[in-house]
Simulated scan of single mutants.
Amino acid sequence: MLNRRDLLLASVAAGVAMQNRGAFAKAAQPSTKVNFEIPPHACDCHTHIHLPEKYPFWDGRVYTPEPASPEEMAALHKSLGIERVVIVTPSVYGTDNRATLEGIKFRGDTARGVAVIDDKTSEADLDAMGKAGIKGIRVNLATSGVNDPSIGRKRLEAAIERVKGRGWHVQCYTNLALLTNIKDVLASSPVPIVFDHFGGADADKGLEQPGWAELVEAVKSGKVYVKISGAYRLSNKGPDYPDSVPFAKALIAANPDRLVWGSDWPHPDSVTPPGKKPTDLNPLLQIEDGRVLNLLAEWTPDAATRKKILVDNPARLYGFS
């Protein structure tokens, strides 16, 4: 069953399509000016590249996004004043990381990447990806949810084992409630653990929702990083997402040294509308990235703290010099 946020994202996408008389929207470009000074070497730590004509999407995908090119991403970051980027292989590519690697190559030393792998990925493959700029692997814990948390736990433990000794990290897409079952894994992990999009929190459920206290405590302890990214996935009260404020401030107060920011560009809508097939093209969400970046100044008015989130923490986590 779709939750409230899923329905909102689907309705936003449908509205965009209606406004364009059936034509699909292209990847968003900001029209709102950033209202605070972006420090040198700022990094957008969560983006995707979609090049389906060159690198076909995975047959097992659950949605089909529009293309989003390295050139379009570069235009986004020029508008926002952001120099560095982390490109994450999206689920629609399965374990095919070629589009991500092409995006990294396009941006050169200002880019790093996060790959998706499986049991067939060899150590030689990991070596080659490391040389190309990959600094971590992404695992999806959310599909195990709270129905069988042991599956998510095993996936996380296996991922930690694969990257141990490489100087990489494990990035997790998860249901927040799962954190109550993996606290000990987080505490003992020899590699950094990074959670996407506020750890999968839902602003409608408030700060008392299961798993939120565990996430804040893990951040406070320095054991995990959290991407304060995709505010529109946390909240359904756009375009300014006021109910994101207490969540962001709680994490920043816990430990600003373990937070990074990401746009989640090009904002794919992962919910295939009723009556459509996963292979039908789904329009990209038209998120106003300048306005969303301005939220960071509301979340933390302190310029030194913003520099940690935008520059210092990404440099440490992703190996920027």
Rank of each mutant, 00 (worst) to 15 (best):
V86H: 08
G22W: 00
V191I: 07
D269I: 02
A124L: 06
R112K: 15
N313L: 03
P210F: 07
V139W: 02
S31N: 10
G145T: 02
W212D: 08
P65G: 06
I182M: 00
L285M: 15
T272N: 03
V194F: 01
D44I: 06
L141V: 04
M1N: 08
D184V: 01
V116E: 11
E71K: 14
A213D: 13
L215G: 08
A128M: 10
T305V: 15
N175V: 06
G145D: 04
E157I: 10
I193C: 01
S244P: 09
S229R: 06
V114P: 00
L141P: 02
Q286V: 10
P52C: 05
S11T: 13
G130W: 09
A218V: 09
P256E: 07
E208H: 13
A99G: 13
H50E: 07
S122K: 07
I137H: 02
L295Q: 13
K249C: 04
V85Y: 08
V88I: 14
P274E: 12
D118M: 08
G290M: 03
G167P: 00
E66L: 11
G238V: 13
N3V: 01
N313C: 09
A27G: 03
T305L: 05
T64D: 03
G211M: 07
L156C: 04
N35H: 03
P266S: 11
D280F: 03
R107V: 08
G211Y: 13
S263A: 14
V86Q: 09
E71N: 04
M129Y: 15
R98N: 12
L251Q: 09
